[in-house]
Simulated scan of single mutants.
Amino acid sequence: MSALDLLPWPNADRRKAKRDSDRRTQARDEGGWPTLSFFCELRGPELVRLFQDETLIPLLKKLGATVTIGLVDLSRERAQVARQLSAAGVPVAAWLLLPEESGYWFNAHNATDAWERYGDFIAWTRAHRLRWSRVGIDIEPNIDEVRMVRQRPLAVLRAIPRIFRCIRRNREMYQGLVARIHADGYPVDAYVFPFIHTEREAGTEVLQRITGMIDLHVDREIAMLYTSFVRPYGEGFLDFYARHFPAVAVGVTGGGVEEGLDPPPPLTWDEFTRDLRLTRRHTRDIHVFSLEGCVEQGYLERLVDFDWGVPTHAPPDALERAAALTRQMKFALRALDRPHVASLAATAAVVVPIGLLGLAVRMLRRGDDDGTPDPQQSS
């Protein structure tokens, strides 16, 4: 006898509920049901309040979900929640973050800080006897630079001199950190912008030099494909890039660190489910940003009976826009990968027209001074 047989429902309703339950179980067994993970980036007190909701952990268990906790701090409250989840049988992943004054996210310009933070994380983990299923490195530009560019887009020009910078040593330091995390027994995830794939196809490292993003060898890459930031063409952007990564993060359903401007509205339920189904076409490993946003909007309950089998495709024009952007980006990256050639080309683009203009002026003046009589004077 199943638990459904004990429910005080009419026989027809009970049979329907059992059929739906069997269908979901079959979908999981046949690989139709993806594995879900939810990012959570709340401060300590807010995190504790979130998990005071007694319905939350049972919902996560019903979904078979992992919670990836952003280590905004290494506080007693955060350790308390991590232990609570582990004790309930919910897998917990550690999302490494830096203090904001060190850039918040990991990148080529704070490798030393990243090593120090990991040492603090290990000490905190052992002190509180925490268990982690995986450790994740969030690879993004410095948060202060992101805020500056969002407020004043032309501020991105300040990063142009980095084209000439060598980041090999920084990459080696991060790859060493990955090895250290492995030695401590944890698989390593990297949360990455999808454009890293375009740079690989272009065969350059320009994007990494300018933004500080690092192309690392890890156990799993999770592409951050947040369509809320690229409406109305986000679905094409997601569908185009998701095929190139083993795992994809969708969002944003709400929450997240303040980046300097009002964030776009969170995904509606229709947008969210569209993104889930589009992602499922390419991978079973789906991550959602964020848990707190899904709780606030009541999405977790609706995912329990969610039908993953509805065919979903991005519109052709949205896919073409993503493809065109990729082609343009490759061209730009390959041009900038030879910074001296690019500098000469830029200089030529300015100097040559000026030179031609100067030559034309001189020729006109020579025409005035070559002794040719002025018709008005001769008359």
Score class of each variant (00 low, 15 high):
residue 5 D to F: 04
residue 29 D to V: 13
residue 40 C to S: 12
residue 41 E to K: 01
residue 42 L to D: 04
residue 52 Q to C: 08
residue 61 K to Q: 15
residue 65 A to R: 01
residue 67 V to P: 01
residue 95 W to A: 08
residue 96 L to S: 01
residue 116 E to N: 11
residue 119 G to C: 06
residue 120 D to I: 03
residue 122 I to Q: 11
residue 132 W to I: 10
residue 141 P to M: 10
residue 143 I to R: 09
residue 144 D to I: 07
residue 153 P to E: 10
residue 155 A to L: 07
residue 158 R to D: 14
residue 167 I to G: 02
residue 167 I to W: 01
residue 177 L to W: 03
residue 184 D to R: 04
residue 185 G to V: 08
residue 196 I to H: 04
residue 203 G to A: 07
residue 203 G to Q: 05
residue 215 D to P: 10
residue 222 I to V: 15
residue 222 I to W: 01
residue 226 Y to T: 05
residue 228 S to R: 07
residue 233 Y to C: 01
residue 233 Y to H: 10
residue 234 G to H: 03
residue 248 V to I: 15
residue 254 G to N: 06
residue 268 T to F: 08
residue 271 E to T: 03
residue 272 F to Q: 02
residue 281 R to K: 14
residue 287 H to Q: 08
residue 292 E to N: 13
residue 293 G to W: 13
residue 296 E to N: 07
residue 299 Y to C: 03
residue 309 G to K: 05
residue 312 T to Q: 10
residue 315 P to F: 06
residue 317 D to W: 13
residue 319 L to G: 07
residue 320 E to W: 08
residue 327 R to K: 10
residue 330 K to V: 15
residue 334 R to V: 10
residue 337 D to M: 02
residue 338 R to Q: 13
residue 344 L to T: 03
residue 354 I to N: 04
residue 361 V to S: 07
residue 368 D to V: 08
